[in-house]
């Protein structure tokens, strides 16, 4: 037992060391020159654009359900008019970023892990390397930057659609116009709500791309390792999302209040 735990820790430490090296490789290759613009744009499309529907639908339903759940409580306090404000704050501060990031971890991190993993297995990464091309720059830098760029955008989209979902729930009784609702939402959100939320989505995006690339790029040879890379990418990225969430909330609370 003890031995097993020890070797588990050792593996974890070794893995952490590898990740730091991989991170260094990422930064070195990012600033190396010869940035792969067209591949970056393609990845933004693949990663971002193709996740729009999934993020949109999920956010809409989340907003709708959240409003439906909140409503009875607020009504019983006679604070029904607080509904847009409560919704806006919870969606923009927490639910929008985290739900979007978790969905992206499931869709994007696993996709990258599987794609790079199978490129590794079929020796495509070795072939790039041995030909004198730069697979870190072509495959890894572009993907990590694409997720870092697209996840915040997807979150923004998720926030807006989530609020629209909330509007639908409120408006089942048809008391508020859409304009009034959105202006109420916007009024209730301050800079101190937006900035930490935005910063955290950047980290979410980075970690999704980074973990996906790391797991795929370092996958073992053999078909089952493609599945393992994809799977462990989702697990690790999701965990990191919660860790980052906790840290950013703590830090921003200290700074802002």
């Amino acid at each position: 037992m003890a031995e097993q735990a020890l070797s588990g820790w050792k593996k974890w430490l070794e893995g952490s060391g590898d990740q730091v090296i991989f991170l260094k490789g990422f930064f070195r290759n990012m600033f190396r020159g010869g940035f792969e613009w067209s591949e970056f744009v393609r990845q933004c499309y693949e990663i971002g654009y193709k996740s729009f529907t999934l993020v949109g639908v999920t956010a809409f339903i989340m907003g709708l359900v959240l409003a439906l759940q909140l409503r009875p409580t607020l009504v019983s306090f006679g604070a029904e008019s607080m509904l847009p404000r409560t919704l806006a704050i919870s969606i923009i501060r927490e639910i929008g970023p985290v739900i979007t990031a978790l969905i992206c971890a499931g869709k994007i991190a696993s996709g990258i892990g599987a794609e790079l993993g199978s490129m590794k297995v079929t020796e495509q990464i070795d072939a790039m390397d041995v030909s004198g091309a730069n697979p870190m720059q072509y495959l890894v830098v572009t993907r990590i930057l694409a997720t870092t760029f697209m996840v915040p955008l997807l979150t923004l989209l998720g926030d807006v659609i989530g609020l629209a979902g909330g509007f639908l729930a409120i408006n089942i009784n048809g008391k508020v116009t859409l304009m009034l609702y959105y202006s109420k939402c916007i009024d209730s959100i301050g800079f101190s709500d937006l900035l930490p939320a935005f910063i955290k989505t950047i980290f979410f995006g980075f970690v999704i791309g980074f973990i996906g690339c790391y797991k795929g790029y370092n996958s073992n040879k053999g078909t089952e390792s493609v599945g393992i890379s994809a799977n462990s990418a989702v697990v690790a990225a999701s965990l990191w999302i919660f860790v980052i969430d906790a840290i950013v909330v703590q830090v921003s609370n200290i700074i802002i209040y």
Partner: peptide
Amino acid sequence: IGFLFQSGALY
């Protein structure tokens, strides 16, 4: 150096 992989390693 040109390296022809046994498996082809096509992109």
